[in-house]
Design a protein around this nucleic acid. Sequence first.
RNA 1: GCGGGUGUAGCUCAGGCGGUUAGAGCGCCAGGUUGUGGCCCUGGAGGCCGUGGGUUCGAGUCCCAUCAUUCGCCCCA
Length: 419
Amino acid sequence: MRYSAPRGTADVLPQDSPRWQYIENKFREICRLYGYDELRTPTFEDTELFTRSIGQHTDIVSKEMYTFTDRGERSLTLRPEGTAPVVRAYLQHKLFAEMPVSKVYYITGIFRYERPQAGRFREHHQVGIEAIGSQDPAIDAEVITLGMKYLGSLGIEGLTLKINSVGCPVCRPAYRDALKSAVEPYVGELCESCKIRYEANPLRMLDCKVAHCRELTVNVPNIVDHLCDECAGHLKSVLHYLDMLNVPYTLDSRLVRGFDYYTKTAFEVVSGALGAQNAVLGGGRYDGLVLEMGGQPTPAVGFGSGIERTLAIMEAQGIEIPVTTHPSVFVVTLGDRAKEAGIKLLGDLRNAGVAAEIDYSGKSMKAQMRSADRERAQFAVIIGDDELDKGIVKARNMQTKEETEVDLADAVERIKGML
RNA sequence: GCGGGUGUAGCUCAGGCGGUUAGAGCGCCAGGUUGUGGCCCUGGAGGCCGUGGGUUCGAGUCCCAUCAUUCGCCCCA
């Protein structure tokens, strides 16, 4: 064991990849249903794309990006989040000219230089969607609903959808000031992190997990009461649509998200089945981002959801996935002549669309049968000298133990008929 | 970037105060009729005891470092 995968990364082994495929397939299915098409962007982008969009003073930009210089002296960065590349592609290819609203999804790796712990890695994978071009609160509801339906389709239970509005450039500054004034008398009692937040990003004090900080801020002004008319109306409509679509939620006025570009709707889906990192899906509206990145003012909303965390919940809840990787037929041969015939039959079966396997390690018949059993083949097709002389093969049903002799000449059709 | 736990077989883990050839279960391989799987029985392979230093007559066991992993903080999915 000389080499191992880099810290915070993991292999998805053959025994686990069906789970990943299951999740990805469910997600694609839901996206198709809701009219979202896949958009694939490069694994790395110009560094500036992320520093401008995510915000210079966020944790991601200040200490978590995988940034490198290529041989042409360009500064590039491995994608640390999914939204900025989508917006870049949207602008670069002028997708706004094709349809009033661009609805896209992605399934991709995300890279952040973090200290690994439960549910947190240096490379993780997200499924996500972005709807760019509409300010209609109904599309916020659509995005959220799609996310909940997706997680629900996996059989996950016990999820809580938390939703809030973080305001907009019109009302947020005033709220920020009101918040700071209210907290001012107690600044000295706040935890060290919150003292920094008080100056740098006051809203983040609201979701501090330190009990004393929560007590100090319990009677602080509520952001929902300080929204401008537009933001308040937007939030109200989003909640209305969610009610209408039967999507349960919890209004959480302390929910704040880390990226600078969020406006109005912010939401997060948390699960009690996870550890400290309990958010499995998170997103919101980012009406200022397209403009910030050089486009026309364009409203947008989206979410990202971690595949590893989703898998962790499914495992914690004992959710099984349908297994489809079993071969239909395991070809068992005895002797050199039979091996010839077996390889030929194996090829014919596969050409006819029948999943078929054979042993390549020269095992005894008993061991070949064991392999057939272990791989859960429906039939073991046995070929030996006796059968060859009679021009037949034996098809053994592994469950009923019933053995049927079939002519070698039309074996493929006969076996197909038995499956 | 900061704090705590843990590194022994493919996997899950035992290995009282340092003491000879490091164990178990599961898994794997092979036998139990020279042509038949699951259950059972028997046998076998497989370990630089994470790595590097140190203490000691002697280290899987004690000390230091390092790497990995794990649980937290920060932040996020």
